[in-house]
Measured scan of single mutants.
Amino acid sequence: MSIQHFRVALIPFFAAFCLPVFAHPETLVKVKDAEDQLGARVGYIELDLNSGKILESFRPEERFPMMSTFKVLLCGAVLSRVDAGQEQLGRRIHYSQNDLVEYSPVTEKHLTDGMTVRELCSAAITMSDNTAANLLLTTIGGPKELTAFLHNMGDHVTRLDRWEPELNEAIPNDERDTTMPAAMATTLRKLLTGELLTLASRQQLIDWMEADKVAGPLLRSALPAGWFIADKSGAGERGSRGIIAALGPDGKPSRIVVIYTTGSQATMDERNRQIAEIGASLIKHW
Rank of each mutant, 00 (worst) to 15 (best):
H24K: 15
H24S: 15
E26P: 09
E26Q: 12
L28E: 06
K30H: 08
K32V: 12
K32L: 12
D33M: 13
D33Q: 15
A34P: 01
A34H: 04
D36A: 14
A40L: 04
R41W: 04
G43K: 00
Y44K: 00
E46Y: 08
D48H: 07
D48V: 04
S51V: 07
S51L: 07
G52H: 07
K53Y: 11
K53N: 14
I54K: 07
L55I: 13
E56D: 12
S57M: 11
F58P: 00
R59E: 02
R59P: 03
R59H: 09
P60G: 15
E62S: 08
R63Y: 08
R63L: 09
M66I: 11
M66W: 00
M67H: 07
T69N: 00
K71D: 00
K71P: 00
L74N: 02
G76I: 05
A77L: 11
V78C: 06
L79T: 04
L79W: 03
S80Y: 14
R81S: 08
R81N: 09
D83G: 06
Q86H: 15
E87A: 07
Q88H: 14
Q88K: 15
Q88V: 14
Q88N: 14
G90H: 14
I93T: 05
H94G: 09
H94I: 11
Y95F: 13
N98C: 06
N98P: 13
D99K: 08
V101I: 12
S104R: 03
P105N: 05
T107M: 06
K109C: 08
H110V: 06
L111N: 06
L111M: 12
L111R: 08
G114V: 01
M115W: 00
T116A: 07
R118Q: 15
R118F: 13
E119W: 00
E119I: 00
E119P: 00
L120T: 03
L120A: 05
S122P: 04
I125K: 00
I125N: 00
T126R: 07
S128I: 00
N130M: 01
T131Q: 00
A132P: 03
A133C: 05
N134R: 02
N134W: 01
L135Y: 00
L136Y: 00
T138R: 14
I140A: 07
I140Q: 06
G141M: 06
G142N: 07
G142W: 05
G142I: 04
P143R: 05
P143F: 04
E145W: 10
E145Y: 11
L146P: 00
A148N: 14
A148M: 11
F149D: 06
L150V: 11
H151S: 13
M153F: 09
G154R: 07
H156T: 15
V157E: 12
R159Y: 06
L160Y: 02
R162I: 02
W163G: 08
P165N: 08
E166P: 06
E169Q: 12
E169V: 10
I171T: 15
P172A: 12
P172N: 10
R176I: 03
D177P: 02
D177T: 00
T179L: 03
M180H: 13
P181H: 02
P181Y: 02
P181K: 01
A182P: 06
A183F: 10
M184L: 07
A185E: 02
A185M: 02
T186I: 14
T187G: 08
T187M: 08
R189E: 09
L191C: 07
L192S: 05
T193I: 13
G194F: 08
E195L: 07
L197I: 09
L197M: 09
T198S: 14
T198H: 11
T198I: 06
T198Y: 07
T198Q: 11
L199M: 15
Q203V: 10
I206Q: 11
I206S: 10
I206L: 11
D207C: 13
D207Q: 11
W208Y: 06
D212W: 03
D212R: 04
K213V: 13
V214G: 05
A215I: 05
G216Y: 07
L219V: 10
L223N: 04
L223H: 03
L223W: 03
P224A: 05
A225Q: 12
G226Y: 07
G226C: 08
W227Q: 02
W227C: 03
W227Y: 05
F228R: 07
I229D: 00
D231Q: 06
D231K: 05
D231Y: 04
A235V: 07
G236I: 02
R238P: 09
G239T: 03
S240P: 02
R241N: 05
G242M: 02
A245G: 11
G248N: 02
D250F: 13
D250C: 15
G251C: 09
G251K: 15
K252G: 12
P253Y: 10
S254G: 13
R255W: 03
R255D: 02
I256E: 00
V257S: 04
V257D: 02
I259P: 01
Y260F: 13
T262A: 10
S264C: 09
A266G: 13
T267C: 11
M268T: 09
M268K: 07
D269I: 11
D269H: 13
N272S: 09
N272C: 05
R273H: 11
R273W: 10
Q274A: 14
Q274G: 09
I275W: 04
I275T: 04
I275Q: 04
A276N: 08
E277V: 10
E277W: 07
I278Y: 03
G279T: 06
A280S: 15
A280M: 15
K284A: 13
